[in-house]
Amino acid sequence: MTDTASISTAKKRPRVPLWDNARFICVTLVVVGHGIQRLTYDDDHALVLYLFIYAFHMPAFAIISGYFSKSGSPTRRQMTKVITDILVPYLIMESIWTLVQFLVEGKQEINPSKPSWTLWFLLALGIFRLVLPYLALLRWPLAWAVLLSIGVGYLSNVDSTFSLSRAIGILPFFVLGYKIHEWGVIEKWRMAGPVIWWARAAAVAVFGVWLTVVWVFIDHWRAIDLKFWFFYDSSYNDLGEYQWTAGLMRLGVILLAVVLCAAFFVLVPRSRTWMTTLGQATMYIYLLHSFVLYPLRQTPILRDNPTTPWLIGMVLLSVAISILLASKPVRRIFRPIVEPRPRWLFASSEPSAGGPSRVDPTGSRRD
């Protein structure tokens, strides 16, 4: 099938509101997590919410991205999109962050191999696209991805350079998303009848149990710095675990995330809601929210006010930021840096070379 035919098919494919709803909720949880991070140092309520979110929100994001990824040999258009949708936005955003940090913090280091703040996920998506065709050739690709995730934790020399440690760490979730598509799980769920209420009740119970565990043992989680295990970016030695059994902790974190992600997707509305359209602007929210939160994070205002009212206020502000950044005016203004189309960069003058894209790196298709 030609690229043109593929595009035509994509345009005719009906939207599945569940995915747009899930994207918006996931990216909003990202904003909330970053918004309350400074409060977690001194406030247990903030840390409880932070751990509750971080246990599953990025794994869920990776699952969504994997669901919409293809394992076959990439077409010319798909290879072009890796450059235009991932690498070019990364270089643009990293350059902006380098300038901002120089002006505000006096930081003079220029190192595009070390992604700033949220940009690690863009590079991780690029790595996922590269390795998926090879993993798909193997038997049990999901098992191999889990082994890679556990194994990379034993290697102290694999770090945040090009987001490699974190990309390998959350690779199982990306592959799980790819396999979920292959198994047709979502299609079966969309057609589910009365059983949906039992499933959602079970999902609520799962989240309730996790919230209770976080709350009851919050002193222990703070003592062992559990939040860093949810980042999937540090070696076990760096996390203070020197025994060979440290990999079992990573396995436990992965299994926990899978259970929580399952509960999350069960609870996501399957029909159109007020957030369905906003879910098409995932990358705008993800890439731009850090610039909005940066001034707050650079001032001591959050560290000096670790109280419940400030926690509630930051959660509400984070939701408002997500809605604002998904709006049409914001998307129109920032489209050149979030969705750049550098036709001049490509040797070919074919339409696929830097042509307009209707699908972002997470698989979100804009109407």
Rank of each mutant, 00 (worst) to 15 (best):
A10F: 07
R366I: 15
L176T: 03
L324R: 11
E182H: 09
R332N: 10
Q243V: 15
V214Y: 02
K12E: 13
R166F: 03
L302T: 03
V206H: 01
E339W: 13
A22D: 05
A262R: 09
W344A: 12
F102N: 11
S364P: 02
V213S: 08
L302M: 09
I96P: 04
L226I: 01
W344I: 15
S6H: 14
Y67D: 04
R190L: 14
R200W: 04
F217M: 11
W19R: 06
Y232R: 05
D43P: 09
I285R: 09
S364R: 06
L125F: 07
S71R: 08
V30C: 07
A326W: 02
I333G: 01
H181W: 11
I7M: 08
D43K: 12
R129N: 12
K227F: 14
I312E: 00
A46N: 02
A201V: 14
S357A: 12
L47S: 07
T277I: 14
S364I: 10
I186R: 09
S69Y: 05
N237M: 15
V32H: 02
C26M: 10
G66R: 01
A10G: 07
G33S: 08
L317Q: 02
E339Y: 14
K107R: 14
R222K: 10
R270D: 09
M1Y: 12
R341M: 15
L29R: 06
I323E: 04
E339M: 14
A205C: 08
G193F: 08
I86M: 06
L130C: 11
P336E: 03
E350P: 07
S65K: 02
R129H: 13
A143D: 03
G354Y: 00
W229R: 03
L302C: 07
V100K: 04
M283K: 02
K188S: 12
R129Q: 13
A257N: 04
Q298N: 13
L49F: 05
M191R: 15
N21C: 09
P356T: 15
R358L: 15
D159L: 12
L171D: 03
W97H: 13
A136L: 03
R331E: 09
V131R: 07
T277H: 13
W183E: 08
L135A: 06
L260C: 00
L164I: 09
